[in-house]
Design a protein around this nucleic acid. Structure first.
Lengths: 357, 357
DNA sequence: CGGCAAGCTGACAACGTTGTCGACAACGTG
DNA sequence: CACGTTGTCGACAACGTTGTCAGCTTGCCG
């Protein structure tokens, strides 16, 4: 890695303004503004001269200066806050939001809250200071009422994946409960009754809904779940791994397992692998994963349509910008059970309880 | 999804300014500015009154107005352009850039170019119009010389994953050639000589480097690769799938396969799966994947340190902002071969050539 | 008590842009 | 030729903020 000797031997280090353009073209700077904004009443010849000057200087409109003067004060940018952009759920959501926004000439500022409420509100404050036109966020913690301030200042908010608390707003959410309930029935159809559930923090709305779907469907089966087979508070793959190992040390051990999100899935599959149970315990994961269909057995999943979630959220935001007075909407998006193998393992041959590890 | 009746019954729809704050506190607006910027020479009592007014109005500094007036004109935001944010390589890179930037009070505008040069330059133009303080980008196409304009206007550029063309700039790149060469030697140690390579467009720098490493190491083995065993131009998983299927219809078929990126890997593993060859053909993938260690056989990969790449790129950009005259640097980051199983399949039992499909 | 520095505060210009308005030329009409 | 209308263009104010500077109030020293 040899340093390249070539320093940036440029001159100005300062972007040209419309006044520079005007001077070069020999016109008043307001006329330049007219050309740049496609306003009428500029002689074609003058227009030409100005465009030539623009090209020569490499002028780029300063749209932040523009936005402070414009009537609507819009910055043509929106803010998006997810939990962790490196998570495939978040990144594909972000991609969808971006595409929708870009079609409408808007850029997207992105931030990761890591589930920490303070980071979330810090990011909101930063976005708000940049005067984003609107916010889309995956809310954390117990209170989003602070967002009333942003809204009162004309910055609408859309919640995605979970509803905000202490505030009413447009919200886009998957049908979490229905998805898990379907998974339970699917497993039941293969003879399972001892079905376990591993979930994230119970305070997170998605965990709560998925667990609710689990309990509802388990109740339909008769006895409901064995309380020891329901574990929550699993913030990461490691904790999920340990919880899964414990699960299969129980007597009776579950014969089927449902995991509440993709991090938990990864931890749990590792655990099943370690215990040599991957072919014997039925397994259904919430959230699809890139290689899920290549595992042996291939993972049966409850897939969210992340692109549709992002697009819906973005659409809701732009509609809200157009009509701030419309009633708030709660948009539910279906999830889809994709049977691949792991969810179709029969309960006929239950693993004998293990003695420990 | 019932519409919630509650309309946003707020009043102003306009964010308060320092003048509003000043009026409420009964001071001149410049004094408010002083307090907000922690400038000296404000009586503690006055300061209190102003902070109270700020809190009461929910005032948030308009940092875009601030940035047009500030001496350095900095917006405290940077732009990042990746190929596809939904790709795990891009999203984890983005996450790292974001974290580095956020620690320095900067926000990140993100865009996906999809590998289309025009989209890339459009995004650059948009970012430039927003007056980002700097740009980090994964360049596409054959020419980035248009970025000289941005740089002349004081917006530095850092290339990541690939060098820009037609322009010199700070660049952060993985040691692609070394990684693939190591993979070839690894396979050779398990008896392979008929090793195939599947790559993306040969015009992409990473493809070119990885292929170069492949050819170098193959040459060391003696004969060099069978030309029919080297396929490039595979833009997506589907094409990679078809190429892989064709590969194993050849006589002699390769006994080992190296894939040039994660999309190709997914296509190729599907192909091996379809052909029933996953346990017989040795396989090494460039780029790690989330579930790679859970496949059977687990995927041996050449892993890039995506977080380190993102952090290095961000660091390079901030250092460039501090010292625009420093010589350009080219930063190489090591890759790591992670043996898991698929790369350690011996060549002793080669699959008989297939008759076709 | 006069003088002077230091602390505090506000009036005003300026950033790069858009909005408003008026000046001026060209044109058509009576 | 007088007049209004239309098209073209620039001077100027304004957006919300920071930079500059001058003015006022203190407190301290002689």
């Amino acid at each position: 890695m040899p340093p390249v000797p070539n320093p940036p031997g440029d001159g100005s280090m300062r972007a040209p303004t419309i006044k520079d353009v005007a001077e070069l073209a020999g016109v008043g700077f307001k006329t330049v503004s007219r050309v740049l904004n496609d306003e009428p009443n500029v002689r074609p010849e003058t227009r030409e001269r100005i465009l030539a000057a623009v090209a020569e200087l490499g002028y780029r409109r300063n749209s932040i200066a523009s936005s402070i003067r414009r009537r609507d004060q819009r910055t043509s940018s929106i803010g998006l806050i997810v939990e962790d952009l490196a998570n495939p759920f978040a990144s594909s959501l972000t991609r969808a939001v971006q595409d929708y926004a870009l079609e409408r000439q808007h850029l997207v500022l992105v931030g990761s809250s890591d589930g920490v409420p303070e980071r979330e509100s810090d990011l909101v404050a930063e976005f708000s200071a940049r005067r984003v036109d609107g916010l889309i966020l995956v809310p954390n913690g117990t209170d989003q009422s602070y967002l009333e301030i942003e809204r009162a200042h004309g910055i609408p908010v859309v919640f995605v994946d979970r509803p905000g608390r202490g505030i009413e707003a447009d919200t886009v959410i998957s049908e979490n409960a229905l998805g898990v309930a379907e998974a339970v029935r699917h497993l039941a159809a293969f003879g399972h009754t001892r079905i376990a559930f591993l979930g994230d923090l119970p305070t997170i709305h998605t965990t709560e809904r998925r667990l609710a779907g689990f309990r509802t469907a388990m109740a339909e089966l008769g006895t409901g779940p064995d309380p020891r087979h329901v574990r929550t508070g699993l913030r990461d793959g490691d904790r999920a791994y340990r919880a899964a190992v414990e699960l299969f040390g129980l007597d009776p051990a579950p014969t089927a397992l449902i995991c509440g999100n993709n991090l938990i899935t990864i931890g749990a599959v590792h655990a099943l692998q370690h215990l040599g149970l991957r072919d014997r315990v039925a397994f259904i994961a919430f959230d699809d994963l890139e290689l899920a269909d290549l595992l042996r057995p291939a993972l049966t999943v409850i897939a969210q349509d992340t692109a549709a979630i992002g697009t819906s959220a973005a659409r809701a935001l732009f509609e809200r910008l157009q009509d701030p007075a419309a009633p708030y909407r709660r948009i539910s998006l279906p999830v889809r059970l994709i049977p691949r193998s792991s969810g179709e393992i029969r309960a006929s041959d239950p693993p004998e309880p293990r003695t420990g590890d």
